[in-house]
Write a protein that binds this DNA or RNA. Sequence first.
DNA 1: CAGGAGTGAGAGAGCGCTCTCTCTGCCGGT
DNA 2: ACCGGCAGAGAGAGCGCTCTCTCACTCCTG
Lengths: 343, 343
Amino acid sequence: MAAPPGIKTDVDRRPVTLEEVARIAGVSRATVSRVVNGVATVDRELRQVVEKAISTTGYTPNRAARSLVTRRAGAIGLVLPEEGRTVHDPYFGRVVSGVLPVIRPLGVQLVLTTGDHREVVDDIRQHRLDGVILIHTHGADPLPRQLIEANLPVVLAARPVRPMSITFVDVDQAAGAGLAADHLVSSGCRRLATITGPLETPAGQDRLRGFREAVARHGLPEPVVVEGDFSREGGAEAARKLLAGRLSGLDVDGLFVASDLMATGALPVLRNGGRRVPEDVKVVGFDDSSPAVECDPPLTTVRQPVEDMAAEMARLLVERVDRPDRPVSSVVFAPTLVVRQSS
Amino acid sequence: MAAPPGIKTDVDRRPVTLEEVARIAGVSRATVSRVVNGVATVDRELRQVVEKAISTTGYTPNRAARSLVTRRAGAIGLVLPEEGRTVHDPYFGRVVSGVLPVIRPLGVQLVLTTGDHREVVDDIRQHRLDGVILIHTHGADPLPRQLIEANLPVVLAARPVRPMSITFVDVDQAAGAGLAADHLVSSGCRRLATITGPLETPAGQDRLRGFREAVARHGLPEPVVVEGDFSREGGAEAARKLLAGRLSGLDVDGLFVASDLMATGALPVLRNGGRRVPEDVKVVGFDDSSPAVECDPPLTTVRQPVEDMAAEMARLLVERVDRPDRPVSSVVFAPTLVVRQSS
DNA sequence: CAGGAGTGAGAGAGCGCTCTCTCTGCCGGT
DNA sequence: ACCGGCAGAGAGAGCGCTCTCTCACTCCTG
């Protein structure tokens, strides 16, 4: 594999520069630059000559050089929480596949980085990154606020815990929970319960609120509420409480679990408690993550259009990088219901 | 949010440059550069003065400028197959969490990119990427060969389909299959079968070979072999064939499925066919992916140390970028067996 | 026909860094 | 005392690009 010393390999061979293209086309560097960057004030004929020179030489601009003068990295960051856990989440992959198609045609790179604050801020300050998308930030995370205060381009993958002037993209959580309630009710359920997310998170709050409101709208009594924590074990624990408490007397026949993962914890508990799903109790989850497909029975669940949302995040971020003075704008997407065998 | 015109925001404020640090420390740019890059020939005292200037100013080098002269991007690419599918695979996340800890301390960025050939080659040629890690390449993919021929730094996440002079990291597939066989035999199974991967892939071949060899080593008869395709549906299909064919007469009591995903397809088929797992037939999968945990019963499976392998890929790639003339070297990792309820 | 406006192209500075080359000063050897 | 050698620091030339400034030329208008 090693090239004999003195023999030029492809790696050694210097790429073509603007200078050379200009020489070949018989014009100045500036003109070639104009053509490359699509500046309109170039004579048609000259433009064609330059374009030919570009294609015969196979020229592509050196990004570092361009970066140096434009002070743009041509790259945005996807910031992962510091604990590795999240990366295993299929959600992460869906975000990536939503973002890439938007930024690739723009020649923008997607850089993966962990949420170390200094590093993220440095990366932006030193023009290694033009802006960042934050996913899975929890309430205590100071990073969003720090970035905002430094006036650095940032987009959040969910509504921030406390209101702040920040661009975010989210799904209408309450509407999603409403979808679940509507579905349960129209499937004949009358005694509803919900296992919520942690109630200090916006998602936890909104899903509970949406569920309650929809239940009330149907004229049904207040649902039984057990707080969970978005984990599988938390879901199992909550389901146990449900069985031990009110559920044993007045049986619940419709259960909305605020995340699929919690639902996969709850299902075996229900089964072991002698409740058949969906015959005795219908269950609806939230997220449409892979556990929803793999658990038994497969879960009816509320689906977030994650890819679309990610694409929108990318668009908003790029927009914000281009014109940082524009007011922030956020987008909320409508969820849909995916019906499977658990309801 | 919008800053009043004329007011300098943090984004506008120019970062500190070498020049300024040099002025403050009262030395030349070159000396500061020496300190930053850890060149030894700097007087102890002077070095301290410079270091102080650096920390008071909060200086960090501009990567674009450095890139321009060193012809190094300070970034490596993780190339995803063009179909989005793979990104949803938890495997992808494990690779990321293996790679990041290795390259971050080196100041190297991880860039996600799709496997478009032109783009990848361009990215390297134009010094946007120093090298790439290819995951999930299939046999027909010309990209590895193209990169090799162009002598660009590349590391493969698996043994290439046809032997070539390329750096790769892989798990010892045959040994993993052997682990599965040993486990089944020592659990009392005597009539073994396997659902293989596609036999044109190295992984498919190696896992079958390893399984067969281990079975023979135990003095048991040749196992029943049904070819699958690594998909859930393919696993179900193969299981049906198994039940319809020999299995119905002479019952198999131990089944090695060459991927967890196929196993999740096979399990319901076995159950519906009246075979209890693990009582009637013990099942072992391969990969230790998330379906293994979520399916019912949870799957005994062969685990690849993906994070470790990914870290090694990153190390090998960085090494290769630093000295492209070194001979290629590959690393093979040992798999382990994770025992759960399916066996 | 003069003069201003408009258009298209080139010259050249400079982005922030690395690195080679040069220079200074101090050491020891003869 | 002279000088070769070397450590340590500075000067300065770029890396490849963008972008402003300038200039030449054409076109329109009064």
